[in-house]
Amino acid sequence: MLTLYGQELRSRMLLGTARYPSPSILADAVRQAGTEVVTVSLRRETAGGRQGGAFFELIRELGVRVLPNTAGCYTVSEAVLTAKMAREVFGTNWIKLEVIGHHDTLQPDVFGLVEAARILASEGFEVFPYTTDDLVVAERLVEAGCKVLMPWCAPIGSAMGPQNIAALRTMRAHFPDVPLIVDAGIGRPSHATTVMELGYDAVLLNTAVAGAGNPALMAAAFAQAIDAGHAAFEAGMLEPRDMAVPSTPVIGKAVFS
């Protein structure tokens, strides 16, 4: 069981809701993956003052927990305001906090992120910060009140997969008791398996599923890959070595060569 802010979850796959060919296909993907948490961008869909709307209604009808996000926010005040709007719209204290610092790579502004996390945590929000794999920033976020960390493994939507395994490993070792979710950069199921094998608690995906030729089938593939990686971590894996180790004993054979 995965526990995020006291909420027990069976599925270790969190799914974004943007850019699917249609809401029906999004719903299929959620069902196929058995996802229990979906993220929703507030900013673009509510600009202009209208809250809610038919798309949010469709999201609510999925019957899964909603993790609203502050995607598209570049400043602390924008992110805080969006988080408050999200609380109104979806009636949840959960917020996936994004404060973007760089237009091209969508790299988080980690200084703004820590500041916004502190403000939101003090106002009762349960913050899921989208951060880099920087250890010191992660410590600051935990100090600010975050009980979950969501490092990228590559830039959002890049599909590059884990770029810095050593940093991800260090982060896992340094925060053994904080749920760690790889958010952003995963392109294919094997990437998800890789980070789960490192002992990560969950994976958050969007583009890799929404942009697939058959999103629902890809969602199912990711769900299996994530479960496989997690089971492998739990089972304990062999360390690689530089010589063959036959699985059948050779002692006692007629020719020993």
Binding site: E45, G53, A54, F55
Partner: peptide, 11 residues
Amino acid sequence: MIERDDAGPIT
């Protein structure tokens, strides 16, 4: 393509 039904001016 924005999931919203208002026809206010372009942002």
